[in-house]
């Protein structure tokens, strides 16, 4: 009687170990590239959230000193420092990070200038709609939602602050620049400078992007850029 009970216990233990080993195998089934990508993302998010946590004031984009003006459109110190901080937290390596970030913002301000020149605007309603669409996408993709929630929590922001400050800043630029892009490409097609494509392929999209960038670059070259006196020493390339 005792012998058979021991035998049953031993068999059950072996079965349990077997099941656990299969379980462990399936839990570690994520492929190595996925794991490496996740690790890379997590590492950057740690630095990004730490930057947000100690620089919440930088989210007030249009406040603080004006460090430069592009065709009369100001670049505020807060926006510059936000973008610089995020670029550094993301591991960006540039010979001169200040020049790099300023160059990027100059391009964006030239795009804003062009948008206003062609009377292209983005309404609050459009921004809200874009943000709601994004929220829905994250809610339907639990893995990404979890990462976003972790970033928001570690940044010391509320969800509302994230969507209505930082993401609102992104959404406005994305929508405005997208409208400008569509306008410039359509004009280019009308003028015969780019061909209207039957189907949108990656090659066509790249061709349109190159055309759009070349138009913006032309305006950057002729843009009136002035850097405030106290910041002149910071930007060696200007």
């Amino acid at each position: 009687m005792k012998k058979s009970r021991t035998l049953i216990l031993v068999s059950l233990s072996i079965f349990l170990i077997f099941i656990l080993s299969i379980g462990a195998f399936s839990f570690s089934a994520k492929n190595p590239q996925e794991k490496a990508n996740e690790l890379q993302f997590d590492n950057i998010m740690k630095k990004v959230s730490s930057f947000f946590k100690s620089n919440k004031d930088k989210l007030e984009i249009n406040k603080g000193d004006v460090i430069a003006e592009v065709n009369g459109i100001p670049i505020y110190k807060n926006e510059f420092e936000l973008r610089k901080g995020l670029a550094l937290a993301s591991g960006l390596q540039a010979d001169n990070i200040d020049d790099y970030v300023l160059q990027k913002l100059i391009k964006e301000k030239v795009q804003e200038y062009l948008a206003s020149k062609y009377n292209i605007k983005v309404s609050d309603g459009e921004i809200n709609e874009y943000i709601e669409k994004e929220k829905k996408e994250f809610n339907e993709y639990p893995e990404a939602k979890k990462k976003l929630d972790e970033l928001i929590a570690a940044s010391g922001m509320t969800e509302d602050e994230y969507w209505n400050t930082y993401e609102r800043y992104n959404a406005r630029r994305i929508l405005l620049f997208n409208k400008l892009y569509n306008f410039i490409v359509e004009e280019g097609i009308k003028r015969g400078e780019v061909k209207k494509a039957e189907q949108m392929t990656s090659d066509v999209q790249n061709e349109y992007k190159i055309y759009f960038d070349s138009v913006v670059d032309k305006y950057i070259k002729t843009a009136k850029i002035s850097i405030s006196d106290e910041y002149k020493a910071m930007f060696k390339g200007f």
Partner: peptide, 16 residues
């Protein structure tokens, strides 16, 4: 297929 990624210019975005 969906992936998420971070850009210092545009934040966290989903690519589907």
């Amino acid at each position: 297929i969906r992936h998420y990624a971070w850009s210092s210019d545009w934040g966290t975005k989903i690519f589907a």
